[in-house]
């Protein structure tokens, strides 16, 4: 199948960057989107051009490395799908596609479609963990975890930190990501002791990283490849408000 691609090309973080038009005749409906780009890159390399840079790792939709905007939708906008798991059968012969990197001040573009997401790492470092005693391992099942809490924690723990929530949010807010981490850890007994300080610290760090503010539009939930629900943002708000109330 034939495709016309408009791709954001940017040599380095300081380069101005521009959209460049490419045409390829070698796309196949069985390819994933990234495989299609691999083939295009082979063509570019054989023509002596610089290949298009994009992040990727597992190509199974579980690592959170890949992701860019396709026609204005994060990961292409297919429910529960990362770009590596998005297949070319969803597109038609002759389609014109716009590929752009995640856009946010907190996610500076490093090259082409690759952005620096270490702001997420710093948010995790601020409170996205539980403190445990080292030493002998505790007995298995020593701490009882209600099934419902385990389920809810697992749902939130699905977040792979790809950044699609920030990219799709009209406000470039990281609320879904932070809410997922807060819900994941806060739902479990092991995460309870630090529930409030975690919310305070992660929210403060999110703000420090210059992410935007949530207006409850739900774009993040709709494009999240892991179906993280908007409910986790309410959980973050609740934990943060409770923590600020109790904080002395």
């Amino acid at each position: 199948m034939r495709l016309i691609l408009h791709v954001w090309r940017q040599k380095s973080p300081n380069d101005e960057g521009r959209m460049v038009r490419y045409e390829t005749n070698h796309a196949d409906p069985h390819m994933s989107f990234l495989e299609m780009l691999d083939v295009l890159n082979e063509e570019l390399i054989s023509n002596g051009e610089e290949p298009i840079a994009f992040d990727h790792d597992c190509r199974e939709g579980i690592c959170g490395s890949c992701g860019f905007m396709i026609n204005g939708k994060a990961h292409g906008g297919h429910p529960g799908t990362t770009v590596c798991q998005l297949h070319m059968r969803h597109f038609k012969d002759g389609d014109e596609l716009y590929l752009e990197p995640w856009r946010a001040k907190a996610f500076p573009v490093l090259k082409d479609l690759v952005v620096d997401r270490s702001a997420f790492d710093r948010i995790i470092a601020a409170g996205g963990f539980i403190s445990v005693r080292t030493g002998s391992a505790p007995d298995g099942n020593d701490i009882l975890v209600p099934k419902e809490a385990a389920d809810r924690a697992m749902d939130a723990a699905q977040c792979i930190g790809c950044g699609a929530c920030v990219a799709s949010c009209p406000n470039a807010s990281a609320s879904l990501f932070v809410g997922a981490k807060i819900s994941h850890l806060g739902s479990l007994p092991q995460g309870k002791p630090e529930q409030e300080i975690r919310a305070m610290r992660m929210v403060a760090q999110m703000n420090e990283e210059l992410f935007g503010t949530c207006t409850n539009l739900g774009e993040c939930e709709a494009t999240c490849p892991k179906h993280i629900p908007l409910e986790v943002i309410a959980r973050m708000n609740r934990d943060y408000l409770a923590a600020s109330w109790k904080h002395r």
Partner: peptide, 13 residues
Amino acid sequence: ARPRGYVKKEPVA
């Protein structure tokens, strides 16, 4: 938080 916007942006939800 988004000094540079998208060339193309479609609302989903």
